[in-house]
């Protein structure tokens, strides 16, 4: 397959993922509103917000790192989606996945948060600094069970290639990692909640909190970049989970319902449960999910 075609396929992937992400954002907020017995925003409101934010003039910058913060954040989302095989067996939608891509993806999962921390730290706004401190603490706590469950999967399949892991799950529903290694699956699902920026773990970004956490100073196009990433990143992560735990997808009709249901898992939890404080969420992650993650590693090694 020629490089031109691969790049075209990558751009097509990005386009699809971004639109799906924006629509899902709108639908999610609509669901939240309906649970509150409100009418809620129009489902296409995220598009309008995005256009409006990109069309604001009069931007203020606070330095080089302030520019790079949103760009790092977007890089993590785009990088994640570019190195995940979307459709198993499709050469085009495998994008740039290669034999060791799982390590790179673990890196990308954390990369955006770090970039954002540096960028919003430069803005000099105290609320950003507090938000960064809280956000990093919470993301780190959620990351430990996540990495443990991923490691468990890697040990199980003796492979660091996501394509190989997906390929090993193709022979039937019972061959999905979620059923062959249920401990890792449950751990990953719990850690999934922590990295989706939704209630109960969204205290860092909640508008009601000290004002809005890290992006307090971000406005206009900067905020537009962050919003774009907020559309891409959760969908990319959902597809990664589908690949690792739910047998991947050999076609679009198989991918869409799996990804949608997994996405809705975080939406349902977010709608039902109230927000945790940072210390509460850290404690929560370091209890059940961490224990399950360790157990899954032990089990996969000795069983």
């Amino acid at each position: 397959m020629s490089w031109t075609l691969r790049i075209l396929y990558a751009l097509l992937t990005l386009f699809i993922v971004m639109n799906v992400g924006l629509l899902l954002n709108g639908v999610t907020r609509k669901i939240y509103a309906r649970v509150n017995r409100r009418v809620g925003i129009r489902f296409y409101q995220p598009y309008i917000d995005l256009v409006k934010n990109y069309s604001l003039t009069n931007l203020v910058t606070h330095g080089v790192m302030f520019y790079l913060g949103p760009i790092f954040r977007l890089t993590s989302g785009v990088g994640l989606i570019l190195f995940i095989p979307l459709i198993y067996g499709s050469q085009g939608f495998s994008n740039f996945s290669f034999s060791g891509d799982a390590v790179l993806i673990l890196y990308f999962l954390f990369f955006g948060t770090l970039g954002m921390a540096l960028g919003s730290g430069e803005s000099g706004q105290p609320h950003s600094a507090i938000g960064v401190a809280r956000g990093l603490a919470q993301v780190t706590a959620a990351e430990i069970p996540l990495v443990l469950s991923f490691l468990s999967v890697f040990i199980q399949y003796q492979s660091l290639s996501i394509t190989e892991i997906v390929g090993a799950q193709q022979s039937g529903i019972l061959q999905w990692t979620f059923f062959t290694n249920p401990l890792a699956g449950v751990t990953a699902l719990l850690a999934f909640l922590g990295s989706m920026m939704r209630s109960p773990f969204d205290v860092v970004l909640a508008p009601q909190e000290i004002p809005i956490g890290p992006p307090t100073e971000y406005h206009g196009a900067f905020l537009g970049v962050l919003q774009t990433n907020r559309a891409i990143f959760p969908v990319a992560k959902t597809i990664l989970y589908v690949n690792l735990f739910f047998g991947g997808a050999a076609s679009w009709p198989a991918l869409i319902p799996k990804a949608f249901l997994l996405y809705m898992w975080s939406v349902v939890v977010g709608t039902v449960f109230p927000r945790y404080r940072v210390d509460q969420s850290i404690r929560w992650f370091l209890k059940v999910p961490l224990a399950l993650g360790l157990l899954s590693i032990v089990c996969i090694h000795f069983c």
């Binding site: 409100r38 009418v39 925003i41 129009r42 203020v60 009601q208 992006p215 307090t216 905020l223």
Partner: peptide, 22 residues
């Protein structure tokens, strides 16, 4: 912001920081 009037359906939202408000 409450169910009775719900300005969100007209594209009106509240932001906590002046940098993001219009």
């Amino acid at each position: 912001m409450t169910p009775k009037y719900d300005a969100y359906q007209y594209g009106i939202q509240w932001r906590p920081t002046p940098r993001q408000a219009n």
